[in-house]
């Protein structure tokens, strides 16, 4: 219940903070600053940023969750170590390097940034899917099989619901980290709030720099909240 209350209050606080940032950005800004910080421009940057995170996280979930399920099936358990190894590589190579590598293949733009972010967010989702499924009490699985559930039914009705909180935690980590990392997308011309930060740095306009940084931080908190709220909704509906 306390969790529920926290979930209800958080969006109000985030909205208030966002309005505060915009008001501060506009107050006393000169014409060139206003050119970058106009409300419409800021909204565009936020949308770009969100699109990058949403698409890359969704793709990571679409690949890492099935891979995690596969790696925990009897007979395919051998797959788990190599899969985790690949995901670890994706995680430990610096994002900027992944972006540079992707840049050499797909050139400038949205697609390149998504590939970089996707590679970066595979690991938390995969690791948590494997951990969540491996953590299901084997006695529960045996009882389910012994009662005549097919393997698919055991997965859908027993294993996955029990692993769900851990899987969601992985998705949450991946998405929040992605919001931060997406600030680098500006280097491959994919826009996002990172553009404000680089413009601010290049032109020594602290107002622009701080606005970009603050909005990125608020967006990370908002994404964290949204996924927690979705997970809570999914749980209460079951």
């Amino acid at each position: 219940m306390r969790e529920g209350k926290r979930l209800a209050v958080t969006p109000l606080l985030l909205c208030a903070a966002a309005v505060g940032v915009v008001v501060w950005a506009h107050k006393g800004a000169d014409v060139s600053e206003l050119g970058v910080l106009a409300t419409g421009k800021l909204a565009l940057r936020v949308r770009e940023h969100l699109a990058l995170c949403a698409v890359s996280t969704a793709l990571a979930v679409a690949v890492a969750v099935p891979a995690g399920v596969a790696a925990t099936r009897p007979g395919l358990r051998r797959l788990a170590p190599p899969l985790l190894f690949v995901a670890n590589v994706g995680q430990s190579v610096p994002t900027i390097a992944v972006l540079a590598l992707a840049f050499s293949v797909t050139g400038i733009g949205f697609r390149t940034a998504v590939i970089g972010l996707w590679a970066y967010s595979l690991l938390p989702v995969l690791r948590n899917t494997v951990a969540g499924l491996a953590g299901v009490d084997p006695a529960v699985v045996e009882a389910a099989r012994g009662m005549g559930m097919s393997r698919a039914q055991v997965l859908r009705r027993v294993e996955f619901p029990l692993a769900w909180p851990v899987v969601v935690a992985g998705i949450r980590t991946a998405a929040v980290v992605n919001v931060g990392t997406a600030a680098l997308a500006t280097f491959v011309g994919a826009g996002g709030l990172g553009a404000l930060i680089t413009v601010g740095l290049d032109n020594q306009r602290d107002r622009i720099l701080y606005t970009g940084a603050a909005l990125t931080a608020l967006l990370a908190l908002a994404v964290d909240w949204a996924i927690a709220a979705l997970a809570e909704l999914g749980r209460s509906r079951r």
Partner: peptide
């Protein structure tokens, strides 16, 4: 079974 294995 001994551990019962109820679905939690």
């Amino acid at each position: 079974i001994q551990q019962v294995g109820l679905f939690p």
